[in-house]
């Protein structure tokens, strides 16, 4: 692990003393010297977040507004495109840019909320298991076995199809994904934390369990859990997009990137941009988060796998 750290420290070494431009100076200030890929990823994530939050203010059309005279119009950078619809239109003449902005909003929302649900659920279960040990722990480990034995997407598809796919159900289902990773992680961390002398000492002083966990255990494991959440986030985003692509996720009139892609699939020959644009947005988003997650892990918590 020390060698891994070395990788990230070495470049900063070579960079010091070299005359820097504005960007590398800023990167240096943020501890990012030499990490061009990570910087690019962070900038892209910031951009996506900005669009997701403020995109509606400059969204050119309503995302559901149809224009049946302008169906499948190509984007401006292709032959026959126009500035009216920068990224073209879809089969119903809806503006692709507007749909992308709207879809991005929902994809990001589901991804983030889903990740938080999974992280909280899993961590709480893990902590509970580590606290009570015994049969509680046994039951949790069995649930983990159960979760691992069924590919999550299959479970998710079945539940969404049978229980119904309202946004709430979708977010909960997507959120459940990955809970077992947090549960395992927090369980083992709490176990080793509780075994530490100072925690035992604090406990023997008669501090309540709640206070011990809040003041002494949580601060110790929070960093690792956050890193784990960053590593899980791309998977959650991909899961939602896959479900929506298959038509079982986000339902019209709402839209998400995966859903736009699913529609675009039928027009691959005539209008490839409908599928390719949202695909690119998702790909670069998950890639950026993965890059940042790896970097964070190497930086903060080399023990995580």
């Amino acid at each position: 692990m020390t060698t891994k750290q070395a990788d990230s420290v070495m470049p900063s070494h070579t960079a010091t003393g070299v005359k820097r431009g504005w960007l590398s100076a800023t990167m240096h200030r943020w501890g990012l010297s030499g990490e061009w890929l990570v910087t690019a990823a962070l900038i892209y994530i910031a951009f996506i977040l900005f669009i997701a939050v403020f995109g509606f203010t400059f969204q050119p059309y309503e995302h559901t507004k149809q224009d049946l005279f302008n169906q499948l119009q190509p984007p401006v950078f292709m032959d026959g495109g126009s500035w009216d619809h920068i990224f073209g239109t879809d089969d119903l003449g809806r503006d692709v840019l507007s749909r992308l902005i709207k879809g991005l909003q929902l994809s990001v929302l589901i991804g983030v909320v889903g990740t938080v649900i999974g992280a909280v659920l899993g961590s709480v279960l893990g902590i509970v298991a580590a606290h009570f040990r015994g049969w509680v722990e046994e039951v949790l480990m069995m649930l983990v076995d159960v979760q691992v034995s069924l590919p999550f997407i299959i479970f998710a598809l079945a539940v969404l199809a049978f229980v119904g796919n309202s946004l709430t159900v979708l977010i909960i289902v997507v959120g459940i994904d990955g809970w077992e990773r947090y549960a395992r992680l927090s369980r083992s961390m709490v176990l080793s934390c509780n075994a530490q002398d100072y925690v035992r000492a604090v406990r023997s002083l008669g501090l309540s369990n709640y206070k011990i966990y809040r003041r002494h255990v949580l601060p110790n494991i929070l960093g690792t859990l956050v890193v784990q959440a960053t590593i899980n986030l791309p998977g959650v985003i991909l899961l939602e997009s896959t479900l929506s692509f298959l038509g079982l996720g986000v339902q019209p009139p709402m839209t998400s990137l995966g859903q736009i892609l699913g529609v675009g699939r039928d027009y691959l020959i005539l209008a490839p941009w409908i599928a390719v644009l949202p695909g690119m947005v998702i790909f670069f988003l998950t890639l950026s988060i993965a890059v940042v997650g790896d970097w964070l892990r190497d930086r903060l918590d080399p023990t995580l796998k």
Partner: peptide, 22 residues
Amino acid sequence: AVASFSMPSYFLGLLLILFFSL
């Protein structure tokens, strides 16, 4: 490797169809 598992598999499939088939 990192790019490959950040890529939505269905999207990769569509891209391959777009290029190699269509």
